[in-house]
């Protein structure tokens, strides 16, 4: 549901249409999104196209609304009392907040990996099998196949195959985070959202996750919220810079980091604030 007051003027839009992005097929289209927590507005008129099978990173200082926007995509904000949403997020031509969309089906197709790794207090196998199970897969061999495929997809199979039935909480931080990725992969989503997935990991574990994201690009559209500009420049194809709930700049990562169009972006990436 779009607010008639929000008029999107292409000339004023922070989206850098001139940088070749217009050609990229926008897969998810965020249009005129406003969001309030109670009386406090957290997002202001966000317009953002997210390209298919590429990695889009959201950067910006803390509290700039990047995680909030990420959570709009799988409607996790619905869980928060007093959260009000306005605008449209189009996916395959349908508004994800529209009446034609079934919430649980949507979340199944848009996976999410959280900042704090959150494996369920169950075995590794059960963690990965949880998603397929709740979607009605009971067949044991099918589950096993899915678990192996997902763990391989998350580059965890080799480390975990001998301890599938041990508690997931015995894994290391990096392994847990890859387990969460495997868990997201097991329900065969189209999009994976990463909410600061490496903020609690050491550089080696971070490197593994980044390699994995590169690998996953073949099949998945990915969005990553990160505090690390190095990470954004390393992994993403497109970067969106947010500041105080507004989208300041969006473009190809290389362009954003080398030739930012906005002064605020330049200040942030050169470390003058944030």
């Amino acid at each position: 549901m779009s607010d008639p007051a929000v008029v999107i003027d292409p000339a004023e839009s922070p989206v850098a249409h001139g940088s070749g992005l217009a050609d990229a097929r926008s897969y998810l289209d965020i249009q005129g999104v406003n969001l309030w927590y109670g009386n406090k507005q957290a997002l202001f008129d966000i317009d953002l196209p997210i390209p298919e099978k590429e990695i889009t990173s959201f950067i910006g200082p803390s509290g700039c609304g990047k995680s909030t926007l990420l959570r709009c995509i799988n409607r996790l904000n619905d869980l928060i009392d007093g959260c009000r949403f306005e605008g449209r997020i189009l996916w395959e031509g349908q508004d994800i907040n529209g009446s034609g969309i079934e919430l649980h089906g949507l979340r199944t197709r848009i996976g999410m990996v959280f900042q704090k790794s959150n494996p369920f207090p169950k075995s590794i196998f059960e963690n990965v099998a949880y998603g397929p199970r709740i979607h009605g897969i009971r067949n044991k061999s099918k589950l096993q196949e899915l678990v192996e495929k997902s763990l391989r997809g998350a580059a965890l199979w080799e480390e975990a195959k001998d301890r599938l039935h041990e508690s997931a909480l015995g894994l290391s931080g990096g392994q847990m985070q890859r387990l969460c990725i495997a868990r997201a992969l097991a329900v065969e989503p189209d999009i994976i959202l990463f909410d600061e997935p490496c903020s609690a990991l050491d550089p080696i574990a971070t490197g593994k996750i980044e390699d994995l994201m590169e690998e996953l690009k073949k099949d998945y559209t990915q969005v990553i919220v990160t505090h690390s500009m190095q990470q954004a420049s390393r992994v993403s194809d497109h970067t969106a810079f947010f500041y105080l709930g507004e989208l300041v700049e969006f473009g190809e990562t290389q362009q954003v980091f080398t030739r930012p169009l906005q002064k605020q972006t330049e200040d942030y990436i050169s470390g003058r604030f944030g």
Partner: peptide
């Protein structure tokens, strides 16, 4: 939230 994000009710 991890469970909700997998589409669980």
């Amino acid at each position: 939230q991890g469970s909700y994000a997998l589409g669980a009710t």
